[in-house]
Simulated scan of single mutants.
Amino acid sequence: MSQAPQAGGLSDRLVDGLLDLISEGALAPGDSLPTVRELATRFAVTTPTIREALRRLQTTDAVRMRHGSGIYVGDGIHRMLLPNPNSTPLKDEHIVQLVEARLTIEPGIAALAAVNRTVDDVERLARAVDTAKRAPDDNRPKLNFHRELAAASGNQVLFEVVDSLLSARSREQRALRAQIENRVRDYEQHVAIFLAVEAGNAELARRLTEQHLHDLRTTVTDHLGTPE
C-alpha cells in the first residue's frame, strides 16, 4: 500500500501523492486513474478525504472527475502557469498595459515560431488565418491566430503566457477585437506574419508582429483617449 509523503498537511500530502502517481505511471491527459475507493485505500484515508484532494486538482484541470465514468488526467496536468478566471474587469490603463505586454512578448514569439515551426504548426496557423474569413454561423472549430503562433514557438512557457492572457482575459480581448475598425488590414497582417513564419524568416516575422501589435496599441489608446 502506497503512503503519501509525510511533509505538509494531509490535503497537501494527498495532492502530492496523486501527482506522483500520475508522473510515475507516465499518465497523459485522458488516461484514467483508479477509483476514489481504490485511491482512498492506496493512501490509507477516507473517501471524502481523497475526494477533497481530487477537487483541488480538478480546479487546475490536472484531473477531471466524470460522474458515472471515472477519474481522468486533465489537460492542465503539464501547465506551469495558471490564469485567474475570477479576476475583476480591467481598468482602461490596464487594458493598455495588456496590449503593451503582448507587444513586448509576441514579436519574439513570432521569431521563434519561424525557426521552430513544424508542418502541423503551419497547418494550424493557416486554419487560424482562415478562421477570420468565416461567417458568424460557421460552426467549425475556431483557432486563435496568436495562440497558434505561440504554440508554434516550441516554448511551453511562452505559449502558456499567451494562452493565459487570451483565456483569462477573454472579455478584454473581445473588447480589443471590437475596436479594430480596419478588419481587412488586420487580416492582411495576420497573413503576412503567417507567410514569414512559413518561410522561416524570423526577423521578418518579428518585425511584422511588432507592427501589428503597435497598430493595435494605437487603436486602443485612440479609443480610450490615453496618450501613447
Rank of each mutant, 00 (worst) to 15 (best):
V99T: 05
V96A: 13
L103G: 10
G108K: 03
K91G: 15
E106A: 02
L98V: 05
A114K: 06
A110M: 09
V96K: 01
R117L: 06
R102G: 07
A111V: 08
P107T: 06
E106R: 01
L103N: 07
V99P: 03
V96N: 01
E93A: 05
L103S: 13
I95C: 07
A110G: 08
H94I: 04
H94K: 07
R117K: 10
S87V: 10
I95A: 09
A111E: 07
P107F: 00
T104A: 15
I105G: 03
R102C: 05
H94P: 00
N116T: 10
H94T: 09
A101G: 15
L98D: 04
L112H: 03
A101E: 09
A113P: 09
R102V: 03
T88V: 14
V115S: 08
Q97N: 15
I109H: 06
E106H: 03
P89Q: 07
E100W: 13
K91W: 10
H94Y: 11
A114D: 06
E106V: 00
A114T: 10
V99D: 02
V99Y: 06
L112K: 07
L90S: 05
V115K: 11
L90V: 05
A101P: 03
L90K: 02
Q97I: 10
E93C: 04
Q97C: 11
I105H: 05
N116E: 14
L103I: 08
L90W: 06
L90I: 07
P107L: 06
A111T: 07
I95Q: 03
H94F: 13
K91D: 14
N116F: 12
L112S: 08
A110E: 10
E106G: 02
V99F: 05
D92T: 08
P107Q: 04
V99H: 05
H94G: 08
T88K: 12
D92H: 12
L98G: 09
P107D: 04
E93N: 08
L103C: 07
E93H: 11
L112C: 12
L103D: 03
R117I: 00
T104K: 07
T88Y: 04
L98S: 09
L112V: 06
I95M: 13
V115M: 09
R117S: 15
K91E: 12
I109P: 02
V99W: 01
P107S: 04
K91A: 14
V96Y: 02
L112F: 11
I105L: 12
N116C: 02
P89M: 01
L98W: 06
P107M: 03
L98I: 05
T88H: 00
A101H: 12
R102S: 04
A113V: 11
A101C: 15
